[in-house]
Design a protein around this nucleic acid. Sequence first.
DNA 1: CATGAATGAGCTTTCATTCAT
DNA 2: CATGAATGAAAGCTCATTCAT
Lengths: 225, 225, 225, 225
Amino acid sequence: MPKRPARGRPVGRGVTRDNILRAAIDVFAKHGYAGARVDRISKAARSTDRMIYYYFNSKEELFVVALETIYKELGEAEAALDLSGLNPDESLRAIIKFNWNHYLAHPEMLTLLNNENLQQGKHVARSKRVKELSFPLLAILSRVLARGVKEKMFRPNINPYDLYIAICALGYFYLSNRFTLSAFLGRTLMAPRSLAHWEVLIQDIIMRFVCVTPRATRASANGSI
Amino acid sequence: MPKRPARGRPVGRGVTRDNILRAAIDVFAKHGYAGARVDRISKAARSTDRMIYYYFNSKEELFVVALETIYKELGEAEAALDLSGLNPDESLRAIIKFNWNHYLAHPEMLTLLNNENLQQGKHVARSKRVKELSFPLLAILSRVLARGVKEKMFRPNINPYDLYIAICALGYFYLSNRFTLSAFLGRTLMAPRSLAHWEVLIQDIIMRFVCVTPRATRASANGSI
Amino acid sequence: MPKRPARGRPVGRGVTRDNILRAAIDVFAKHGYAGARVDRISKAARSTDRMIYYYFNSKEELFVVALETIYKELGEAEAALDLSGLNPDESLRAIIKFNWNHYLAHPEMLTLLNNENLQQGKHVARSKRVKELSFPLLAILSRVLARGVKEKMFRPNINPYDLYIAICALGYFYLSNRFTLSAFLGRTLMAPRSLAHWEVLIQDIIMRFVCVTPRATRASANGSI
Amino acid sequence: MPKRPARGRPVGRGVTRDNILRAAIDVFAKHGYAGARVDRISKAARSTDRMIYYYFNSKEELFVVALETIYKELGEAEAALDLSGLNPDESLRAIIKFNWNHYLAHPEMLTLLNNENLQQGKHVARSKRVKELSFPLLAILSRVLARGVKEKMFRPNINPYDLYIAICALGYFYLSNRFTLSAFLGRTLMAPRSLAHWEVLIQDIIMRFVCVTPRATRASANGSI
DNA sequence: CATGAATGAGCTTTCATTCAT
DNA sequence: CATGAATGAAAGCTCATTCAT
């Protein structure tokens, strides 16, 4: 059908491009790559299909840019993480919390990544930027671990990669699979109390794994979600 | 589209239906709901588009049945899990291993569930069967926990739901997100050694979380993936 | 989809066939030939698609039988028309009324005939029964006209065919086209008062056409529908 | 379905749309709504299925536009009807003739309207344009009637709505039902002589209904079709 | 720099019908 | 006499994309 030019609000230069990118992240996250129809994206962006091709050439390239964008945002958020003045266990807890809260604040990240994994990571494999993003975080983690070991707080020989994956896994899975999990277990997972409970639990699990002498956290001691 | 009657091999009654279901699980897993074209499924099943509608009425209903099937298979595999003669910590390890190995043996489960979560669980929400499947598993877990507490092996007040989610998370995420994770961390995750390492690591993390006096496993002590 | 055997009410021999025929008349009338889906007919008949083919061989043959059935019913109704003891103008009025009331009582006749005309009468052209049906009616009409002329009531040289078509036209069109007519004119046509008004009007128009000295009927004198 | 780009003749802007609309009116008229296949329309328009959806969104919307078009054309033809300088009875005869000739020249109108009535007028009910079209026509008719009454030519209290329906009925039914009528009565209805005869007959019937002193027309006096 | 118009290819689904007992 | 199972062939519609200015 002849598209009408989306006169919702006047747009300046490049705003359209950004609108489209935002809309794309949204729609890709909600419907998956194949399920995200180009015209749904253009409508959500208050633009037209044509503009998507004008700025991004193809649906696939748009998806790659969307993916890189959320990775970039993860990187920027990490850059803001300040651990100075914290001792090792406080630092580790801060990292865990940061990770969890980033997922909570950016649910589109989870779905976009799930999509990329569904497609066997064919886009991310080519992206250099993505690979470089892990270095700072892994470096931070390694440093914290080393300090903890030196202070006899942490067990030696904890692999930072393992640690990172475990931290991610505990947060990511809970949120990403909340729908099936919720149906399967018959439980609410997204109530504020449930979320708070799980945030503490992740910390508890990780700290017990890392620390020499495990110390219980309040929350983990009283059990119920 | 479907032009030839698919005379590949002679089919008995109901075999076609099952072929389609198998193919559907496969194709849905590989391409996602929207990406799974009906005719790809029918071709994979050595049948025709028409037969899919004959047996399942719509692509969506086929997806629901596929989903229920993988849940049912999880349930059946669990039912075969024999913990008799094992003490609490051995039992818990067996459960963790079972879970991990089920994911490894049924990668389609991960992608199907990811898809369902992408669709906000709209199919699973309606399925009663799915809800009932969690009871036996949770019951087993609760019993093991109780025995462990009685024998002073496990900490009291460990919530079986939390425990179950944590066990799943650590296995599921590693496998489901292996592509982005691999690109991001620049590491191989699917080599036999890596898998074996992670299997032990999950156990280690969980046992440390559950046990009163954590006991290191050999594997977790020598670090690298 | 595997059809279930329609166990609504127990059916005796031949009842199924008749159910199907009734349903077919209904569905053909409501949706037209092409729009009448075989499975809608079978559902309406509380039977299955297969039974339609069992009894009628094809959708087309079923349509022919449906058509013949409504013609047969018209014939039977006409056979019951008793004009004995009435003088010519009373007779003619009775014929007009009969015609109108038959349309009212059998709306499916109108839609079925419209369908057949849409298809350029290809079924009816082959049917002998249909042709024979007009003879008695035309004969009656001719006799009434002749008597009227003899009694100086009716004008000579009125052609019975013309007369018959005119009578039909005035009733048929009003009912058959009531939807577009109603929208176009912005008037209700199916209210009891409107129907009664039109019934009188047809008589009035025809009598004025046929009679030597036209006599007004009450209804036609006070105008409004 | 549509494989070749339809390069039959070079098309300017909007020509395609109009081609489709013309073809649609034709095909809907010939096969009915359900029987009119989208690809038959596109072929008849020397275009593609896709273009139908591009311009009209759906088969149903196309049908609505087709319907509105034939109504609009009726309106335009009426607007061209010049009654100036005619006295009331001549005017009325002119209107009757116009109506009859419009049906003859636009047989698609009859079938399209029959289709719409088969569908219970669901499209026409929503169209405002259609409703407004009847006003000028009814106005003309009312004026003619009033003049006729003033000149003591016409009977008072003739309802213009009734009159209009009667005029339409006598022409519409004859043409629309010609196939079944022809088979039923065993007569030719479409021969030039038959058509001419009927044209006069409609006038005769209506004039006798309307006029104070009926005056026979030559044609109606010598009977046979 | 931006966009209205157009479209090839393929998608899910439905239709009337036949096979086989 | 009756019917459950199966199906070839299209039907209506949508998708990402390119043409042309």
